[in-house]
Design a protein around this nucleic acid. Structure first.
Lengths: 217, 217
DNA sequence: GTCTATAGTCGGATAGAC
DNA sequence: GTCTATCCGACTATAGAC
C-alpha cells in the first residue's frame, strides 16, 4: 500500500494505524468511521484510501501493528521459553518456575495502558474472527500462547498435546485474561476506576500461587 | 414502549429482541442495522421505532432479556448459594464443594449454544460498558458472581472482601470465561470447530480440580 | 503527498395507507 | 398493529487542485 518511503508518508501511516487500533478496538469495524480515524490521526479523509486503499486493509494493518508491538513486549520471555522448551527434558519443578516467570511480563503487558487498545482489538477478534485473527495467531503472540500451554502440561503432569493439557493451559491463560475480558466486572468487583500497580502485583502474585499449586496434581 | 398487550404485539417484540441480541452481539451497536434486525425478526423496519422508540432502547431491552434468561439458567445454583452463604459460618471444605457445584451450571451455560449470543453481547459490554452493563450487573447475574467471589475467599482461606480474595475469585471466573472470551484461540488450540459435550466436561473437570487445589493455600 | 469538494450508497426514523 | 414509501443525514471512496 505504501507508495514511497518519504518520512512524511511513513509518519502519516503510523498515525493512521495508531488511531485505527484505538478506534476499531473501541467500536469495532463498522462502528468506526474512516472520518474519525483520519481526525484522530490529524490527517485528511483521503489519506486512508491513498495509503491503505480500503478501510479493510487499514484494519488488517492495525492487526499487524498490534502483533509487532505485543511481540516486542513478550520477546524476552519468549526467548527464554523457546530455549528451555527445545533444549530437552524439563522437570515439573522447572516448568512451574518458567511458567511463573512467563506470566510476569504477560500480566504486566495485559495491565499496561497501551495494551488496553490492543486487548480490546484482539478480544473483538475472538468473538468474531476475521483475517486479522490469522495475522495475530501466526505471529509470535500465538507462539507465546502455545509455549505457555505446553509448559502448563509439563507443570501439571499432563500429557503434552492432550486435550486435558490444552484445556488446563487455557484456564491458566484465562486467569490473567479475566481482568481484560471481564474488565467492567473486575473493576466493579475491586471497586476501582482502573487497575493500578498494586492490583497488577496482586493479580500476578495470585496467579503465581495458582501455578505453584499445579505441583499437587 | 409496548403500547398494548395484544398477543401479536408481544410476539413481534420478542422476535425483535431475539434478533437484536444475536446481531448486536455479533457486530456491536453501530455495526448492526435496524434493517437487519427487522429482517431477521420477520418484521418491518417501522416495527422497531413503534415498539422501542429508538435503536438504543432496543439495545437496552436486549440486555434486560439476557439478564432474565441467564438468571433463569443460574437460578437453582443461586438459590443454594444464597441459602448456604447467609445461613452462617461456612467451612473451607464446604465452600470448596459449593464452588465446584456452582461451576457446573456456569460452565454448562457458558458452553451452551444459546449462551453464545448472550456471551458475545456481555463481553462487548465489558470492553466498552454502557447502561446495559448496569442492567446486567444489577440483575441476579451480578449476584451470582458476587457469591462465587465470596465463596472463593472462604475456600482459599482469604479474608472475605479483601482485594486478594476478590482477585482470586476473578481469576477463578476467568478460567471458565476463557473459553468464551478467547474463543478463537481456544478453538484453534483444541483443534475444534466448536466446543462439544466432551470438551465442556473436560473444562468443568479441570476447573473443579483447580478449585480443590485451593485447599493447599 | 496531501488536501477540498463531491459522487454514490446506506443508515435511522417518520408519514400515512391498510 | 403492521406495513410501504420516503426523508434526511452520514458514510466510504473518488476526482482533481495544490
Amino acid at each position: 500500500m505504501p507508495k514511497r518511503d518519504d518520512p512524511r508518508s511513513v509518519e502519516t501511516r503510523e498515525r493512521l494505524v495508531g488511531a485505527a487500533i484505538e478506534l476499531f478496538g473501541l467500536a469495532g469495524f463498522d462502528g468506526t468511521t474512516t472520518r474519525a480515524i483520519a481526525d484522530k490521526a490529524g490527517a485528511s479523509l483521503a489519506a486512508i484510501p491513498y495509503h491503505f486503499t480500503t478501510k479493510e486493509k487499514l484494519y488488517l494493518a492495525a492487526a499487524s501493528s498490534i502483533a509487532e508491538q505485543v511481540t516486542q513486549r513478550l520477546a524476552p520471555a519468549l526467548k527464554v521459553l523457546d530455549a528451555e522448551i527445545y533444549s530437552g527434558a524439563l522437570s515439573r519443578k522447572k516448568a512451574i518456575t518458567l511458567l511463573e516467570e512467563s506470566f510476569i511480563p504477560f500480566v504486566t503487558m495485559l495491565a499496561s495502558r497501551e495494551s488496553e487498545k490492543w486487548a480490546r482489538f484482539m478480544l473483538r477478534e475472538q468473538a468474531a474472527p476475521t483475517e486479522a485473527f490469522e495475522i495475530l495467531y501466526a505471529s509470535d503472540v500465538g507462539r507465546f500462547f502455545r509455549n505457555v500451554i505446553h509448559l502448563t502440561a509439563i507443570a501439571s503432569g499432563d500429557v503434552p498435546g492432550s486435550q486435558t493439557a490444552r484445556i488446563r493451559g487455557l484456564t491458566l491463560v484465562g486467569q490473567a485474561l479475566a481482568f481484560r475480558a471481564a474488565r467492567a466486572l473486575s473493576l466493579r468487583t475491586l471497586e476501582r476506576e482502573d487497575l493500578g500497580p498494586e492490583e497488577i502485583a496482586a493479580v500476578t502474585s495470585s496467579i503465581r500461587e495458582h501455578i505453584r499449586l499445579l505441583r499437587y496434581l
